Amino acid sequence: MKETRVPSRRRTRWIIAILVIAAMVGAGVAIVALNRSGAADGPPFGLVTPLSFRPVLEAKDGSSCTSPDLRSEDGSFCYRLGEGMTVRQARQMRAEKLPDSSQWVVVITFVSADGAAFGQLSGRAAGQPYPRNQLAMVVDGVVEAAPTVTDAITGGAVQLSVGGATQQAATDFVRRFKP
């Protein structure tokens, strides 16, 4: 009769350790793949017009605008802005309807370096008193919007509410930037 050999405890521990390590490596690869902003969306594209994000230092009535202040799109506000960042390429930019709402937003997925810079910029604005808790979105020297930032935005993408949050406004905004 043939003798059946039972694996030793040491061998069993090694097998379990190898399986645990393999599972951890597999999970790590999956997490990295899922967190790479737009990795599956192909290469980044250059924006037709650069888009700047700058911290608001002061906001006042639009009639009191002087150089180097910038006006809001509708002219009702005047902003004094700090140094920020300029986005010249993105992984993705699209108009998207918010779930359970009639509002539309523009979603921009940044390239890695811009995603990190935006996370830092938004983190510095978050928690500041008004108006320093706002980030101005500047296009061609005009403040398109200056939303309030409540938390650092570190996910590599941002949702922007533009022009009344309609589908047409969001789609038009995207067309201004995509080649």
Rank of each mutant, 00 (worst) to 15 (best):
R91G: 11
T66M: 04
I15V: 07
A90C: 12
G84P: 05
C78K: 04
W14R: 11
L51A: 02
R132Q: 15
A95R: 06
M24L: 15
A116H: 11
R36E: 00
S52I: 05
G127W: 05
G84D: 05
A33D: 00
A170Y: 08
R91N: 08
I153F: 01
L51Y: 03
S101E: 04
R54T: 01
V87N: 11
A59N: 01
R94T: 09
W14G: 12
V162P: 03
S64W: 10
E73S: 05
D100M: 12
L34F: 05
S101G: 07
V149D: 09
E96V: 10
S76E: 11
A17R: 12
R54Q: 04
S161Y: 13
V25E: 07
V158W: 12
P147Q: 10
S76N: 11
S8N: 12
A95Q: 14
V29E: 01
R36S: 02
E83P: 08
R91C: 13
K178M: 01
A90T: 06
F53P: 01
G155V: 14
T4H: 08
P44N: 02
F110I: 02
G75H: 00
M93T: 07
G38F: 04
S63M: 03
A136Q: 07
I21Q: 15
I108T: 09
L98K: 05
W14Q: 11
I15H: 03
S63P: 09
L160H: 10
P129V: 01
L70M: 06
G82E: 05
W14N: 05
E83A: 03
V158L: 08
Y79C: 05
T171Y: 11
A113F: 12
R9E: 13
Q103L: 14
K60P: 11
R124N: 00
